[in-house]
């Protein structure tokens, strides 16, 4: 390989890294909406990134990376659905289209929502924050968490949902009030 080709390759590599880093969480979030199970979503995300890396030479520099990447992620999700005939949650093609369209709108403000969430987390009670930490920092499943603290799994699901909804409303309020730019 000559020096010019090497430099060009190195430049493309850096470009890929930069674009991926900038859009990583949007892609992650999109895949999670179609494959909510964390372990499976991680598989799809990994295969999507690998596919993007292998086909980055086909990506035109002046085109929309996010749109290109969303298409690849969607393709990888559909491939995953095909491989997983017994997968419990497979959205119908129409539902996928609706989720894709809605996700595009929601992902625009992803980072603002993240900043708002940071502020909202500070308002959580000690008890709820600890619950979240045990669930997410320690990666405990809700079932094992429920077993440990002696509550039914259904109650644990509802409690987690209640905390998240409180945070979601807080995020909305912060975005609506312009607290977060």
């Amino acid at each position: 390989m000559d020096q010019i080709s090497r430099k060009r390759d190195a430049g493309r590599h850096s470009e890929f890294v930069e674009l991926l880093t900038r859009n990583y969480y949007k892609l992650n979030s999109f895949i999670l909406t179609l494959v909510p199970h964390r372990m499976d979503a991680e598989d799809v995300l990994q295969s999507s990134i690998t596919y993007m890396w292998e086909h980055f030479k086909d990506f035109k520099p002046d085109s929309n990376f996010l749109s290109w990447a969303f298409t690849i992620c969607k393709y990888q999700v559909l491939t995953y659905y095909k491989q997983q005939q017994r997968c419990r949650l497979q959205f119908s093609p129409k539902a996928i289209d609706i989720i894709e369209a809605e996700n595009e709108k929601v992902s625009d403000a992803l980072e603002q929502r993240y900043d708002a969430l940071k502020a909202c987390m500070k308002h959580l009670s000690e008890k709820d924050l600890t619950f979240l930490k045990r669930r997410f920092v320690e990666s405990k499943s809700l079932k094992s968490l429920a077993d440990e603290i002696g509550m039914s799994v259904n109650v644990a699901y509802k409690h987690l949902a209640r905390i998240k909804n409180a945070l979601l409303r807080c995020v909305h309020q912060k975005l609506d009030s312009g607290d977060v730019i």
């Binding site: 979030s29 999670l32 809605e102 992902s107 929502r113 969430l117 997410f136 998240k164 945070l167």
Partner: peptide
Amino acid sequence: CEYVQLTMNI
């Protein structure tokens, strides 16, 4: 979509 995104942000 918002709920899933929030979970990821958490």
